[in-house]
């Protein structure tokens, strides 16, 4: 879909043409899923975010400014849908999540593989996932955007609708928590 065609499709979709919107869904679904998966860390949650994001996008298309980039606008919706979903999940599973992280961190040190093996191991990823899951939804979203997606603090601020300082501190808090949770692995390395 070239730029002219894309603009025409967007214009039709904004007028309520569902076939045009279908073209947008087909075009962007995979990238939306990728971001949603990185944000939520869970395939089923990512699928829910994909659907919810497109439903929100369709509803709000009238407010989309045609000179803006649809992908960037959609990216913002996906990020916020992910935060919403994680908040809802956190409310339900706070207790369980805390316990699972404690278990992950409290593995006996002598069960840890060597640093060389750790670098490639599934266990380190499991621990990382546990640590990420213990972050607040906003911290996780900000960290994902900074660490995985390579977004600047200013971009994170705009994407999540936060002030620059709030975006920055969400990343800082996430890094501090991750450092604390992954410290046992680091001490094994040194």
């Amino acid at each position: 879909m070239d730029a002219t065609e894309s603009a025409a499709v967007l214009a039709r979709a904004r007028q309520g043409d569902s076939e045009a919107f279908r073209a947008l869904v087909e075009r962007h679904s995979r990238s939306v899923f990728r971001l949603a998966f990185r944000m939520t860390g869970n395939e089923q949650d990512a699928e829910d975010v994909v659907q919810e994001s497109f439903l929100r996008a369709y509803k709000q298309l009238g407010r989309f400014e045609s000179r803006a980039n649809f992908g960037t606008w959609l990216y913002r919706i996906v990020s916020n849908c992910s935060v919403d979903l994680m908040r809802a999940k956190q409310a339900r599973h706070d207790q369980t999540r805390g316990e699972s992280l404690d278990e992950a961190v409290e593995l006996p040190a002598n069960d840890l593989p060597t640093p060389e093996r750790l670098a490639q191991s599934a266990e380190i990823q499991q621990r990382v996932q546990g640590a990420l899951a213990a972050l607040s939804p906003l911290e996780r979203a900000a960290f994902t955007l900074r660490h995985y997606e390579g977004r600047s603090i200013d971009e994170i601020s705009r994407t999540l609708g936060l002030g620059t300082s709030a975006a920055k501190h969400s990343v800082f808090r996430a890094v501090r928590k991750l450092r604390a949770a992954l410290a046992p692995l680091r001490s094994q390395e040194s």
Binding site: R22, V25, E26, R27, H28, S29, R30, F33, R34, F37, R38, G41, E43, V50, Q51, F54, A119, I124, Q125, V128, Q129, L132, H147, Y148, V175, L178, R179, L182, A183, L185, R186
Partner: peptide, 22 residues
């Protein structure tokens, strides 16, 4: 610490995925 945190492998979605979502 941050170097340990590699991007997770995103499960593959096929060419028909967009249609499935639709």
């Amino acid at each position: 610490t941050l170097a340990m945190i590699a991007a997770p492998d995103v499960p593959e979605r096929g060419d028909q995925y967009g249609l499935e979502v639709w």
